[in-house]
Nucleic acid binder design. Sequence first.
RNA 1: AAAAUAAAUCAUCUUAUCGCCUUUGAGCAAUCAAGGGAGGAAAGUCUGGACAACGUAGAGCAGCGUGCUUCCUAACGGGAAGGUAUUAAUUUGGAGACGAAUUGAUAACAGCAAGUGCAACAGAAAAUUACCGCCAAAUCUCGGUUUGGUAAGGGUGAAAAGGUAGAGUAAGAGACUACCGCUUGUUUGGUGACAAACAGGGCGUAUGUAAACCUCACGUGUUGAAAGACCAAAUAGGCUGACAGUUGUAGGGCUGCUCGCCUGAUGUCAGUGGGUAGGUCGAUAGAGCGUAUCGGUGACGGUGCGUCGAGAUAAAUGAUAAGACUUUUUAGUGAAAUACCUAAAAAUGACAGAAUCCGGCUUAUAGAUUUAUUUUCUAA
RNA 2: GGUCCGUUCGUCUAGGGGUUAGGACACGUCCCUUUCACGGAUGAAACACGGGUUCGAUUCCCGUACGGACUA
Length: 152
Amino acid sequence: MKFTFKKSERLNSKKVIEQLFDKKGRETNPSVFLYPFRVTYIHEILSDKSQVISEDLNVTESGELTTLENLPLTTTPPQILISVSKRSFKHAVDRNLVKRRTREAYRLNKHLLMQKPSNQIPAYIAFVYIAKTIEDYAKIEKSMKAIFKKMV
RNA sequence: AAAAUAAAUCAUCUUAUCGCCUUUGAGCAAUCAAGGGAGGAAAGUCUGGACAACGUAGAGCAGCGUGCUUCCUAACGGGAAGGUAUUAAUUUGGAGACGAAUUGAUAACAGCAAGUGCAACAGAAAAUUACCGCCAAAUCUCGGUUUGGUAAGGGUGAAAAGGUAGAGUAAGAGACUACCGCUUGUUUGGUGACAAACAGGGCGUAUGUAAACCUCACGUGUUGAAAGACCAAAUAGGCUGACAGUUGUAGGGCUGCUCGCCUGAUGUCAGUGGGUAGGUCGAUAGAGCGUAUCGGUGACGGUGCGUCGAGAUAAAUGAUAAGACUUUUUAGUGAAAUACCUAAAAAUGACAGAAUCCGGCUUAUAGAUUUAUUUUCUAA
RNA sequence: GGUCCGUUCGUCUAGGGGUUAGGACACGUCCCUUUCACGGAUGAAACACGGGUUCGAUUCCCGUACGGACUA
């Protein structure tokens, strides 16, 4: 396992971002809340047809459906997004610093997530930085590991 | 030598491991190798352009912007040099009003001597002034009243109707004289702002305010890279062209208005063709940077030589570890100390992160270095 | 990225050079009532910050800070 973080692992589709953060998604999508992050993630793109099926996957985790979805998930790592609010940090320098530290912590600890059973690895993850102060790298790395443990 | 102020320059470094973006090369591909990777303000968005579309962008008005002069520049609301005014310090002329010189600072510094408006309170009066005064005449109850003259003095105010001295007068007054200030004309000097000299004006044509309306001069078409061009996929309204038809009418478009110009109701054929934020270009070799030399008081310009120095797009340029350096604090050394040296601890190590690109302006900025000015101390 | 607007008592607002910056709700004290509410009287409380123009600035101009709207 290499500690890489390529462009393909970044979430840049506006449709998926809207699904993560719109009103509907905020209620239905699973999320983990752990200082200094709020992490929201989904397992599959919710198109109009597959919406019912994927919701079943989240809730019931029926065996037949997950085995079908296994193949693409194991080969490709999830796409992630890191967000730092302009309200909490006024200067762009501070926002960039937090984003870089978060990205670095994800990159170096990604293998912990990939060791999980393949049906538990989400397809899209959003890390939202909530704290009002800039935390150092050690603290961010610690909470990143804890988040991976909590994610289902 | 120290401190303060102003200006300019720099604005942490080295090594290792793991990564990100990009260029070139190799490879069927995964990937590998080599090179490059934030700033002086990248910021604020206050300005001027390049570039692009709107029909190849028409006229006048309105609106908006600028406002001493000349120059620099692609252009500017930026810069350079100069002029004038105000002001501070020093020196100096004069009886005085008021000037002169040097050095520094400041100026949205065109026009209230075109028009209109405004000037609270106080004051008689805030722009065709007369309250207390001063003077003369009349009158009577003999210190008041009335009429007239006057604007020197008083008081109010931010601002009071040219100032000083004289002569003059009933008292006074540019009504008169000298000087000063203001102002008009001519001449001379200067590219010009303007300056100097001479001759007038007689200052009730002339209080202040244009960051009040406004006048004058100059500039300005509008919208901004989410502009716009191309490629792939994909449908309707639409759009374009040709032909026929039509009062070039209603209506529509071009800039807010007017003029002016263009288009203009239907049918057939052919072509083109949204949204859907997919990709490529625009988009990084430029009014570029460095250096030498020449011209210019200077901003700056010419010439020669060298050089390529980020190009992301939910947005790269980083993380960790060790060491050096810096700053702060504490302790020690030392006769003492704010200096130097040693040790330890702390500090995400000033402000701050490219978003089409350049020229400026403004604002933020730990520390270091250099230059200039002022003050203090020490030595000769 | 671009364009534009605003900031006045605790809150919502008026005032667009001149004497004490006005009003409503809320708040304090007193009166009314057995008490509370309603009502009456009275009081405290504000021009975002820094410069400039002006005799004088909340108002005009410039800069800074903060907040908001529009633009796909």
